[in-house]
Design a binder for these strands. Structure first.
Lengths: 338, 338
DNA sequence: CTGAAAGCGCTTACAG
DNA sequence: CTGAAAGCGCTTACAG
C-alpha cells in the first residue's frame, strides 16, 4: 500500500490503478496503452479505475522505461512569422488527437542553432521530427541519419526522393508570379527580398527564370538578410524608387514587405497599381484589406502542417510514404494591386 | 562495462562518465550539477570526461529520480498574437541561460483549455510556472495552490498582493488614452474591442472612467468576442460610421483593429485624424509605418517576460519577491493618427 | 491472455 | 568530501 502515490505531485500511480482494478501493473500498463492482447473486460476495469482515480501517466517514467517518448520535435525557423505559427497549430491539433505532444523549437533561421536544438531535443528521446526546409548543417543531417528516427520536412520538396517532405515548389510559385505580372502588361520588374533563406532564393530564381524565358529584362533585386518586416518594406521601396524610378512591377518575398511598400507608396503619392504593380507572398492576414488590396500567393501552411504530421504518424505506424515528396501546391490570389 | 550506453540513442551515460573520471556515478552526478561539496579536482575531472564523451544528461531519468525537472511551464492565451510571442522569446532567453527549458502551452483564450493544460503539464513535474493574467478557473487555481510550485503571473497585476506578478495597470493605460484624446480636443468617443478578455475590459473600464471624470459622454462601444484582426477592424469601423457618424475619436483594444479601420477609412474617404482620431494598443510592428502613423500604447511585453522569468528563478533560489506585484508601466506613443 | 523479475539512467537519503 | 544502496514509475523481455 505504502508508496502508491507520486511523491512530488501526490498523483496516483499505475500501481494504484492496478490495485484498484485487481490486476498487475503490467496488465494495467498494457490496458492503458491499448495493447491488443489484453482481455476486453480487464481493459474496461483498468480504464474505469484510472478514470476514477484521475490517473495520468508519468511521462518521465514512460520515457525512461521505453527509451521512447510520445514527443515529436517540431522545428521552425522563427516564431515571429505568422506563417510558421499557423503551420505549428495544425501540427499540434493532429498530434494531440493521437496522443502525441509536439516539442517546439525555433532557431531564428540559424542552421547552427538548429543543429544545437536537434542535439538537445534528441535527449528527450522523441519518436520523430518535423523540420522546416532543407537548410540543415551537414552535422545536423548526420545526427538525424544516425538516430534513425522518422522525420518529415515541410515547406520545401525533397529532391533526393527518399526523404519524406510536404510542401510546394517555391520555384514554381516565383514563376507563377512572373507570368501573372507579364500577363498584366508589366515590363520592368523588381524582386524585393529579406531573410534570404533557401526558399526566398528559390522563389527569386523561379521568378527570374520565367522572365528570362519570356524574353524580359531580368528583375532588379533588392535583397536584405534582415528579417522581413513592414519597416524594411518601406525602406526598400524608397531605395527602389530612388534608384529605379521606371520599375513597373514588384514581387515581394513576403507580404509584410508589400505592406510597408504600400504605406510608403501612399505617402510618396505613387499610385498602385497604375504606376507600379505589387505582388506579395503568403497571403498573410490583412493582405485582402490593404489599400489597394494586395495580390499575393496563398501558401497552404496549415495544410502542410496537417499533412506532415499525418505522414509522420503513418511512418510511426510502419507505413511507406508514396510519393516521398508530396506537392500540395499554392494559389495565386489576384487582387487590386496588380 | 556492459551497459554504459543509452540503448536507444547510443549516447554515453553518467556511468560511463564516472568510469572515465575514476569516480562513482553519484560523485559524477554531483559534479555536473555543481553541488558545492565536491572536491574541485574531481569536478574538473568529471567535467573533462563528460566533455570528451559528449555526455548530455537524460532528462527523463533526471526527472524521474528527482521528481523535479528543469522545466518551466509557460502559458499564453494565443500564439497568433505577436505580443505573446515577444514575451515568450524573452522568457526563453532568460531561462535557457540558467539551464531551464520553457514548456510552452497556449489555449486560445479558453480558461477551461488552460486548466486542462495545467493538469497535463504538471505531470511533467515542472519546477515552476509563468502564467498570463488572472483568468484561471477556480479548479485551475486549486491545482496551482495544491502543487505548491512557484509561479509568476504576467501582464496583469495581482490585487491580492501575495501572488507574484509583473505587468502594468491595464486600467491606467485606458485612462492615459482618454486623457490624450481629450487633450487633443476630441469630444465624441468610441471604444472598439475584440476578444474581450479581462485585460481588454480593464482598458475599457479605465477609458470610460476617465471620460466620465472629465465630464464627457461615455464612449460608444463595439465589442466582439472574436479574436482581434485587421478584417474585424474594417468591419467594426464600417458599422461605427453607419451608426455613429459623428464620433471623432476611437480607442482600439489592439493595433490590428486600428490597421483595419485605417484601411477602411482610406477606402471610404474619411480623413484621419482630421475627422476622426485613432489610438491603437500594443504598438505592434507596422504601427509606426501605417498611413497615417498610428498613435498607440507601447506595452513592454519583452521586459515583462524577462522580469517574470527572473522573478521565478529568484523564487526557485528561495528569495522573497518585493513587491509581489511589480508594475513596469507602459508608454503612450503619440503619432499622426490623433 | 497475464504476470514476476529486471531494468531504464539518474538522484535521494543515509552512512562514513 | 565520497559512495553503496535503494528507488523514482513505468515498460521490456521472458515465462507460463
Amino acid at each position: 500500500m505504502a508508496k502508491t502515490r507520486n511523491r512530488a505531485t501526490g498523483l496516483p500511480t499505475l500501481a494504484e490503478v492496478a490495485e484498484r482494478a485487481g490486476v498487475s501493473p503490467i496488465t494495467a500498463s498494457r490496458a492503458l496503452r491499448s495493447v491488443p492482447t489484453v482481455d476486453p473486460d480487464l481493459v474496461d476495469r483498468v480504464r474505469q479505475a484510472a478514470r476514477s482515480l484521475g490517473y495520468v501517466p508519468n511521462p518521465a517514467a514512460r520515457t525512461l522505461a521505453s527509451a521512447r517518448s510520445r514527443t515529436v520535435v517540431v522545428l521552425i525557423p522563427a516564431l515571429s512569422n505568422h506563417l510558421f505559427i499557423e503551420m505549428f497549430e495544425a501540427i499540434e491539433t493532429v498530434l494531440r488527437a493521437r496522443g502525441f505532444e509536439p516539442l517546439l523549437g525555433h532557431y531564428q533561421y540559424d542552421a547552427l542553432e538548429e543543429e544545437r536544438l536537434i542535439r538537445t531535443f534528441l535527449t528527450y528521446q522523441p519518436c520523430g521530427l518535423l523540420l522546416t526546409g532543407f537548410d540543415q548543417t551537414p552535422a545536423a543531417t548526420r545526427l538525424l541519419t544516425d538516430c534513425g528516427l522518422p522525420r518529415v520536412h515541410m515547406m520545401e520538396l525533397s529532391e533526393e526522393t527518399e526523404i519524406p517532405s510536404v510542401g510546394f515548389s517555391q520555384d514554381e510559385a516565383g514563376t507563377a508570379v512572373a507570368w501573372h505580372l507579364i500577363s498584366r502588361g508589366r515590363r520592368r520588374f523588381a524582386f524585393l527580398g529579406a531573410q534570404l533563406d533557401r526558399r526566398v532564393l528559390q522563389r527569386r530564381d523561379g521568378f527570374q527564370r520565367a522572365l528570362l524565358e519570356a524574353g524580359m529584362q531580368p528583375a532588379v533585386e533588392f535583397l536584405s538578410p534582415a528579417p522581413s518586416s513592414i519597416a524594411l518594406g518601406c525602406q526598400q521601396f524608397r531605395s527602389l524608387r530612388r534608384d529605379y524610378p521606371d520599375i513597373d512591377a514588384i514581387f515581394f518575398c513576403n507580404d509584410d514587405l508589400a505592406f510597408g511598400a504600400s504605406f510608403e507608396a501612399a505617402r510618396m503619392g505613387v499610385p498602385v497599381p497604375r504606376q507600379i504593380a505589387f505582388v506579395g507572398f503568403n497571403d498573410l492576414p490583412g493582405a485582402n484589406e490593404l489599400v489597394p488590396r494586395l495580390t499575393s500567393v496563398r501558401t497552404p501552411r496549415a495544410e502542410i502542417g496537417r499533412v506532415a504530421a499525418r505522414r509522420l504518424l503513418a511512418l510511426l505506424d510502419g507505413e511507406t510514404l508514396s510519393p516521398p515528396a508530396l506537392d500540395i501546391g499554392f494559389e495565386l490570389m489576384p487582387r487590386q494591386s496588380s
